[in-house]
Design a protein around this nucleic acid. Sequence first.
DNA 1: GGGAATGAAAT
DNA 2: ATTTCATTCCC
Length: 465
Amino acid sequence: MPAQRTRASKQEAARELKRSPSMDSVSSQTIAFAPTVTPGTFFDPPSPQDPPHESMLFPPTADAASPSARRAGHAKKRPENHIPRPPNAFILFRSSFIKNQHVSSEVETNHSTLSKIIGLTWQNLPHEERQIWHTKAKVALDEHKRKFPQYAFRPLHSKGKPAEKRKVREVGPKDLKRCTKIAELLVEGKKGSELDAAIAEFDRHHVPEIVTRFETPITARSFRRSSSAPAPDSNAPFLASASAGKLRSMSSQPETSASTPDPTPGPSARTGSQSDYESSESDGSLCTTPVSPYPTTPFTETNPSFDFSTFSFSSAAPTPIPPAGGHHVSYPCLPPIQTQFDGFAFAPPQQPSPLSCSPLGSEHMYSSPGPLDVGFPYAELYDPFAAGTPGDAQQQQTIYSPLPLPHPAARVQPQLAQFEYAYDYAHDLPAYHPQQQPHADFCFAQQQQHQSYEGEPSYVPAYAM
DNA sequence: GGGAATGAAAT
DNA sequence: ATTTCATTCCC
């Protein structure tokens, strides 16, 4: 989409540009770096005579760029007299954007997401207006030079660990559609309550695609292993290998699922995994029952327009908790099943694999601690085929999979849905169970709450493994 | 301390 | 070509 400018303020921008050298007029007041004062503030106090910026989309406030109010507590350990880098244009823009609360905290508080929105906004910003920030950056740079003539950027290149600790995407894609929408609205000039209202309206109809993150699935094997002999790598059941070396060099690759039509399906991984749970004997103590057929219509990137509004759940009472014993699992409707991500495809079992109900009973039932951020129709799970040992970077690589069912709550309140942990012990498969899903019965797995992901449970659609 | 954006400047 | 670090602040 071309950045279209509703209220182009070319003149303003031009004027601004001319004025720029003096704007931000760095006060002569030098900032002394007393031991207690972090030299994070090479910017100047608000310039009193900042131009009105009326027609600008995001008029910088005078002190917007001043990082003076740096959070004291959480300063990364740096030498006492560390001199921060001069900010670039985007960083200045972002700072100003945040400070001015162009996106209200009602709409978004997460700064990661905010960064995404601001980045999108930045790219759609009219050239003239971006130019203003570049000019500001130049001014800041010059001023930085003036104040710290001896300064030189010395990045610490981690030489000690060669490629050992590569960073991997650890968090799933944000709701890109929403971010994009917000950015669009912003560039269109929407502000304040008008903006909030527009976003609220959008949220009303929009089904978020991705929000949730998942832990490494708990398998029966790992469960058994950890309960008997607490091996350090109790997560290890997924140690296949196919996606080894698939480490992308960062750079958020946010798209929900199948954006990479990598022809290497990694069949070895598939088989590896299969044998992994095939060899897992069906415990005699488990009772299994057939389930209704899986869907035949794939719901993938190619069919992204699943119509949730026509999707009807019987809104009868929530599924009663399945008592120990056989239960039918029926899927009222089954959107996505076939998808591929990260280069290999996950297809549903040819034959619907019967879910089972463990005799574990209610003591093994856990519900999520509260409303969760849940994205539909996609779910994120850790890549079971990622090479590496549990916990290391590669192991944490994530994959994305559609959930077997859209959640009824997704229509009403996309952000709030309650989940429980489910597990199919007979097949060493995790199952999933949205609480309000009226037709599904599952068994529940031991909840494994990880501190780092407090409040977010591990659940995985059963077919995905 | 990671993450999320962009970009300048360093290896 | 790749990595660091500027900004912010929640998790």
